[in-house]
Design a protein around this nucleic acid. Structure first.
Length: 241
DNA sequence: GCCAACGTTGGC
DNA sequence: GCCAACGTTGGC
């Protein structure tokens, strides 16, 4: 599994907590500045300016480069049991479907870049549910964001494998969103197949040429452009390879 | 601020 | 289970 250590317990209370979420938002706004720096590590092998441009692209809207607007996501989760500090972090799509409302909070993200993506997610946006660290890695389902970023309570829980002793209640470092199951993809879309398209597209300029699954392989929360999302989704109509 | 050591992710 | 590809930490 990724960082998201799905909790089998609570099924996330979508909505209801409006005040909390608001407070979190304003707090995050200010805390963002300081933490942004440490999170802003250039990808290995890329220049500083390249990274700056990338960051710029993300915040701007309008202009040449801003076709890079992300409105879809890929969320990794581990469908097979694995112990992290004595706690099983397994969370498969079946586990998601078994939650009340088929909804869960996406807690346990402890990576700044992933966190920043979490915080930019908007209500109603769709995401791929991806099985990682397992026999058959790949996309199994569609989910949607049903609650925007709010503080991840597991950072304050000493018994949680993702407890963070450096985080303050007044200024939480880590956020989570709530996601709800939408549907299974019409078929399993294996990583191997997505990768094959990615390689082909690098040569011919197709839609998956820059897909983050391959350029930032370890990121558990990844954005997709509309084009990337549409192309990957179109694969479910094809025959398996 | 550089960079080596270390830790983690995750495909294979 | 191996190990490549990173992200983080800490010495200097």
């Amino acid at each position: 599994m990724p960082w998201p250590s799905r909790k089998r317990d609570k099924g996330a209370v979508a909505d209801k907590k409006e005040p909390d979420a608001k407070i979190a938002k304003t707090e995050n706004e200010t805390s963002d500045k300081e933490e942004e720096e440490m999170s802003a590590k250039p990808p290995a092998g890329s220049s500083k300016s390249g990274w700056k441009n990338w960051k710029k692209k993300e915040s701007e809207s309008g202009g040449e480069e801003s076709k890079i607007t992300y409105c879809h996501w890929l969320l990794k989760s581990e469908p097979e049991s694995r112990l992290e500090k004595g706690v099983d972090v397994k969370f498969s799509v079946d586990d998601l479907k078994a939650q009340p409302n088929q909804t869960t909070c996406w807690d346990g993200v402890r990576n700044y870049q992933a966190r920043n993506f979490l915080r930019s997610m908007k209500l109603g946006q769709q995401a791929f549910f991806y099985h990682s660290n397992c026999k058959e890695p790949g996309i199994v389902a569609l989910v949607k964001i049903v609650k925007e970023a709010y503080p991840d309570h597991t950072q304050f829980d000493q018994k949680d494998p993702h407890y963070d002793s450096t985080s303050r209640k007044e200024n939480p470092k880590w956020s989570m969103v709530d996601v709800q199951f939408v549907r299974m993809t019409k078929r399993f879309i294996p990583l191997s197949e997505i990768k094959a398209h990615h390689l082909a597209h690098k040569a011919d300029g197709g839609p998956l040429k820059d897909m983050m699954l391959f350029s930032r392989q370890r990121l558990s929360i990844q954005p997709l452009t509309q084009e990337e999302f549409d192309f990957v989704l179109s694969l479910e109509e094809e025959k398996p390879h």
